[in-house]
Write a protein that binds this DNA or RNA. Sequence first.
RNA 1: GGGGCGGUAGCUCAAUUGGUUAGAGUCCCGGACUGUCGAUCCGGUGGUUGCGGGUUCGAGUCCCGUCCGCCUCGCCA
Length: 602
Amino acid sequence: MPQRTHTCGQLNESNTDHNVTLMGWVNAFRGHGSGLVFVDLRDRDGITQIVFDSDDAPTELVEAGDKLRNEDCIRVTGVVRARAKANPKIPTGAIEVLATELEVLSKTAKLPFVPSDESNLPAEETRLKHRYLDLRRPKMQEILRTRHRVTKVTRDYFDEQGFLEIETPMLCRSTPEGARDFLVPSRLQEGMWYALPQSPQLFKQILMIAGCDRYLQIVKCFRDEDPRFDRQAEFTQIDLELAFVDREEVMSIMEGFAKRLWKETMGIDLADFPRMTYQDALNDYGIDRPDTRYDLKLIDISDLAAKTDFGVFQGALEKPKGVVKAIRVPGKAADFSRKVTDAFTKFASDFGAGGIPTTKYVNGDFESGIGKFLGSIKDELIERLGLEDGDAVIFGADTYSIVTKALGELRQKIARDHGFIPEGAWNFLWVYDFPMFEHVEGEGDEPGRFHALHHPFTAPSDHELERFLSADPDNIDEIESIVSDGYDMICNGSEIGGGSIRIHRKDVQAKVFSLLGLSEEEAKLKFSFLLDALSYGAPPHGGIAFGLDRLVMHMCATDNIREVMAFPKTMTGQDLMCEAPNVVDDDQLHELHVKSTATTTV
RNA sequence: GGGGCGGUAGCUCAAUUGGUUAGAGUCCCGGACUGUCGAUCCGGUGGUUGCGGGUUCGAGUCCCGUCCGCCUCGCCA
C-alpha cells in the first residue's frame, strides 16, 4: 500500500500537478451520477476535496467513488489541480485532488450519528456511547490538541525551572480523611486493600525530603464523590512541589507558568495577578474563589438596617453573627420583575436563606419590594451602595455564613443571567491567608471538631507559628483565627490551582493532627512514614496542584468537563462506551478474598 | 442521600382534552443527475413510545415504581 504523502490540511496551489496520496474519512459526498463525484476527505489536519471525474478517469473509478458514504475510511491517490471556483470556507479550498486510484480501507456500517454534521449533534449520551465517532469531529480534535499543548508547555516551562518529572504510585495506602477513596483489593495480602490516590500529596512531600528539590507530575487522581459539571471522579492534576522556597517564590513561579500557558496556547498576555485575602474574598464576593470580571459586590449595611423597622432585618441582626448585606445591580430595575425576584428567593433557599428582599431605585425613590421600609436610611443607603437611577438592589439578612453563601451564589447567577460577564475577559487572582481550621458542629451528641480548610499538611503562616504552637485547643475562636500559608489561583471565578507551604517540622505536624482529633497513636498508624520522614532533616517546602481538566475547559470555553476528556464518565460514574463498571465473575472475587453484598444485579 | 428537567424511528424532533393506522426532517437503501461544496430531485425501508405495574371502553399522553442522561443541594481534607 502506498504511504500517504500529505495530510488533508496541507495541500495548496503550490502543489499543483503533484501526484499525492491522502488517507482519511469521508466527511461529505456529493454525487452527480457515474460522471462526476465530489468527496470531502477529512483527517486530523483538515479537509481536502477529492473529485472523481469520468472525463479524466475510468468509469469504474467514478462509480466506486459514487458508492462512498460518510465516515468510510479510504486511501486516495491523485493529482492536485486548481479548482475552477475556490471554496473560501476551508484552507485547502483553492485546490482539489483528481482521483486516479481509490482504496476503501474500511467501509462504515450505518452510523448512529454523522460526526461532520455539527449543526445536528445527537444527545451527549449517544456521543459518549460512540466516542470514537464523536472524537473525529474537528472541534473535539481541537480540544485534544489544546490539552496536548497545555501538557507540552507545562513540561517545557517546569523543565526550564529545574523541575524533575517523577512518577508516584497508583496503588496507595487508604487515608479516610478527605474524599472517599476508590479501593482495590489485594490478592496477595488477604483482606487488605489499596486505595487509588486522591492526590500524590504525601509522596511529593517525601520527594522533597528525599532531596529531589523540584518535582512535577501530570497525574491522574481519584475521588469517589458525586460528579458535577466541572468535576469527575477521575481527573488529572498538574502536580508540583519545591524545596527551600517561601510562598512568594512559589506564587511567582506559578504565576509565570499561567502567563506562559496563556501566551503559548492562546497568544494572550496576562497582567500581573492581583491578590486578595480569604476574608476579603468572603466579605466582598461571598466566596473564596471570586469572579472579578464584574462588580456586584456584597456590601455590609448592618448598621443602616438596624435603623429600619423591617422585621426581617431586625430578626437577622438579633441572631449571633447576624448581618444584613446588599448588592447593587446596576440598571436592572426594569428587568427585576416579581417573577424574577421570586426566583432569587427560591434559588437562595437552597443555601439556607429565608428570602431575598429586593427593591428598585427609580426616580429618586425606593420603589416596590421592601422600599417602604427604607425611608429612614434612604440617603445613607444610596451613598453606601453608590446607587444611580434605574438600579435594583438585593438584600441578604441572616447569619454571616448564610448571607455570604446565599448572596455569593446569587451574585454569580445574576451575573450569568443578566449579562454582567464581559466577553473574552481573563481575570486571574491569588487568594491567600486562608484559616488553617474551621470548626464544625457535631451532629446530635457528637462533639464539635476542627477540620482542615486546605489539608492537614498546610503550614501556618510564618508570623502565626508561635501563636499556633501555643494555641489552646479548646479556644475555638483562637484556633479558627490562625492563618495558613496557603494560596489558590483563581481564574474567572474558578479555582484552577491550590497549594500551600507545607509543614516541615514534626512538632507542628503533630499539633495539627491532634487538633484534627487524631490521637498520637492514630496519627502514627496512618502517617508514620510522613512523621518519620519529617524527623530526618526535612527541608522547608511547598507546592501547588492545577486542575488540568479545568484549565482546558477555560481555554476551550466548554460547558462541562466531559468535553475536555477523551473518555469521560457520566453522572453515575459509568463509561457508556466500555460499559464500565461491570459485574465480575465470582472466581475473580474469590481470588481477591471479596464477597459482594449487592442485593441487585443488572 | 434530597430536589428539578428529560427519555417517541439509527439520529433530531412532532403528536389538541386520554381517542381511529404514532408523523416530519435526516441517516440508510434504490433511482435520476458533469462543477458540487449543508448539492439537488424522485421513490422506499425503518417504531416493544426506556422498562415494569396500575387506572380506563381506550394510554405516547394520567398514576405508582424502576433504569438511564443532564443540572443542582449535600459531598468533594
